[in-house]
Nucleic acid binder design. Structure first.
Lengths: 245, 245
DNA sequence: CTTATACTGCACTCACGGGTCCAGATTGAT
DNA sequence: ATCAATCTGGACCCGTGAGTGCAGTATAAG
């Protein structure tokens, strides 16, 4: 496994590892800049400081280069996002500032050029390489939403958020953060002023807390069922959180 | 204006109008199916039941065909969306059902194959034709958000929603509706079960109303009911299933 | 130092598709 | 019926880029 993200069992061990890494990095840069079809393999080779046949010594074809580049980028993005979400582990901190910090971090990652490029590439390759979607989704939205859902479930159990469906709440918070940014930035083609970004974060956190902040009026027995649901879902997902061997 | 959406002042009046319309429709179909680069002009001509030179008699080049196709699709989508939002004009109807109806309609339009195709094409052409983004944004999100903001502002003034920033609230409602659908459908590459769609709508309306309803909700009943329905609908959500390397 | 493996630069083949030209058939208008 | 504009089918030119082959060179291991 190691760094061989693409389905290139044949070419996985071939060649020098530093060249391979250079090619993958360069490929994402070039694909992000020009799109898959407009980016020629020669462009990628130039960007990587490598000869074209070297590219074909590491990958069977252009598609495999794309898969490797996208997979690597998705992995990086996932790590960044998970690191941000983990900040919610400190359940002692005041809720609203903590949530705001996490929201700011998530929004910075989701609004980063790399994330936008990944989205764009994934969209444009929907028809050509449907498997890319699953790679990206699994490592980006799906996984992040899961991690966030876990944190929210804990906060709910701790009585700091009202009883909720963790996955749904996480999905909504992410939606409130990412969709407005996506549209303000013209799908990632122009930067969003820092002030606007902050306003979106504030609005998202505000709306989220209004909808999910713990309410004292509710009687305990009415909350029992959803609480049990929450607990079950939490227990269900607690295990795969760790890194695989 | 009129039917000449593209910047083809020269070719705008050339040729027979029915052929032109057939070409535009076919172009969107083919572009949606195969993507811009993979779709050949011959494919478009075949789909339209027309000879290739006829295409070039109506449009100067392939780019212009794309622009016309995208513009037409965006216009159609805008009309559908606006019609849905206008349902909120009846300020006498009970708020929550009305909002739910509008949300359902918006989500159907935003989740339609045509809308997904439009998003995909726009994303993939970000670098080649940046002007497409503005065309699509102006006729889709921007305009719909504006119309929705108008309605929400009226509802707020009428005391049926709390005081709010209209544009922001509209943006958030759209986010709650569209982002989850986009992700559940794998960016539009697979249909979303009707039950899930309905659950997303319910959750979005619920969250929106919790955040923006002007005063008293909520007996514990109202809190718990939507939770149970969505929990049932989400019961089959994808399992974590170990992450592959 | 030797050797195997990988990288380089270049030239090459080949398929594909954008865009054009032309001769002949069709069509709408007068 | 006649004419002009348009459509049709097919052939055609040409640029581009994926992928390969080869001869020579750098490089890590023994």
């Amino acid at each position: 496994m190691s760094a061989n993200g693409a389905g290139t069992a044949d070419h996985g061990s071939r060649g020098r590892i530093d060249k391979r890494r250079a090619i993958v990095d360069a490929a994402f840069t070039v694909f992000a800049r020009a799109g898959y079809e407009q980016a020629s393999v020669q462009d990628i080779a130039d960007e990587a400081g490598v000869a074209k046949p070297t590219v074909y010594n590491h990958f069977p074809d252009k598609d495999a280069v794309l898969t490797a580049a996208v997979t690597a980028a998705a992995r990086t993005l996932l790590a960044e996002n998970l690191a941000v979400v983990e900040q919610l582990r400190e359940t002692d901190a005041p809720l609203e500032p903590a949530l705001r910090a996490v929201a700011t971090g998530l929004q910075q990652v989701c609004g980063s050029p790399r994330a936008h490029a990944l989205r764009r590439i994934t969209y444009s390759q929907l028809n050509r390489q449907p498997e890319l979607i699953d790679i990206v989704q699994a490592r980006t939205w799906g996984r992040v939403a899961q991690a966030l859902a876990d944190r929210l479930a804990c906060l709910s159990l701790a009585g700091r958020l009202r009883p909720l469906e963790p996955a749904q709440a996480a999905e909504q918070l992410l939606a409130l953060l990412s969709a407005p940014i996506e549209n303000r930035s013209r799908l990632g083609s122009r930067p969003v002023p820092a002030g606007e970004s902050a306003a979106i974060v504030d609005a998202a956190v505000d709306t989220f807390l209004r909808a999910y902040h713990h309410v004292e009026l509710t009687s305990a027995d009415e909350l029992a069922a959803p609480l049990r649901t929450t607990a079950a879902a939490l227990a269900d997902r607690r295990r795969p959180e760790g890194v695989q061997a």
